[in-house]
């Protein structure tokens, strides 16, 4: 597939198919985690807590991949791996917030307590991530495209050949992300059942 010829970025524009879907996948997984956290708080079923925590774990993994790939890309286009770009800073902040989620979970031993506190924290973390990634970077000038205004992929970013690759690539990465997350969820459920005598309620919570 041909790509537009651009200065500085050159062929590395193809990183768009890899770097950007990492973040999209992260958002998808964090959104899923957010939904399951709300579900846990409403129903109190530990199964939902395992879903939420493993979705967050996988999301953090994808954020690390996105960050690494972005830094590698930036080294050869922006001249340095880290240039205090507003989007980089916002992402770093939300990554730290989610790292704190892991530490919080690691620090609590009681299942119920850990589930409850981390669910609340997760909802706050998600609510913080949205402005940090989607709102604040767009209000200032940034090295990332589409900032300092409305991004809109259709404006200038993506030509039609790149779209033909980009959208299937996003779908593919979504599926990989969800698959890894389900592997981790299955592991989490198994571990829980091994460690506790009782089984988790299979479906629907007890109301």
């Amino acid at each position: 597939m041909p790509v537009p010829s651009l200065n500085i970025i050159n062929e590395s524009i193809r990183n768009l198919y890899f770097h950007v879907p990492m973040w999209f996948t992260m958002i998808l997984l964090f959104t899923g985690s957010f939904i399951y956290s709300i579900k846990y708080l409403r129903g109190g079923n530990l199964r939902d807590d395992i879903y939420a925590s493993q979705l967050t774990n996988t999301g953090i993994f994808f954020s690390i991949l996105g960050m690494l790939s972005g830094m590698e890309w930036a080294t050869y286009t922006w001249g340095a791996p880290w240039s205090n770009d507003p989007k980089q800073l916002g992402t770093a902040m939300s990554m730290l917030i989610y790292f704190a989620y892991l530490i919080l979970r690691g620090g609590l031993k009681d299942d119920e307590k850990r589930a409850k506190i981390s669910a609340v924290y997760n909802i706050f973390a998600y609510a913080l991530m949205i402005p940090l990634l989607w709102v604040l970077p767009r209000m200032v000038d940034s090295l990332h495209p589409g900032n300092g205004g409305n991004p809109g992929f259709n404006q200038y970013d993506l030509d039609k050949y790149m779209r033909m690759v980009f959208y299937p690539a996003v779908i593919g990465w979504f599926l990989i992300g969800l698959w890894i997350a389900t592997l981790k969820i299955r592991w989490g459920l198994l571990k829980f059942e091994r460690e506790n005598d009782f089984q988790i309620e299979p479906e629907k919570n007890n109301k």
Binding site: N10, E11, R14, S69, T77
Partner: peptide, 20 residues
Amino acid sequence: RSNGKIYVVVLVLATIFAGI
């Protein structure tokens, strides 16, 4: 920086693959 920086893409791909 050679060949239109295509090796940056290779590096990114290798990173992601290794990570996964």
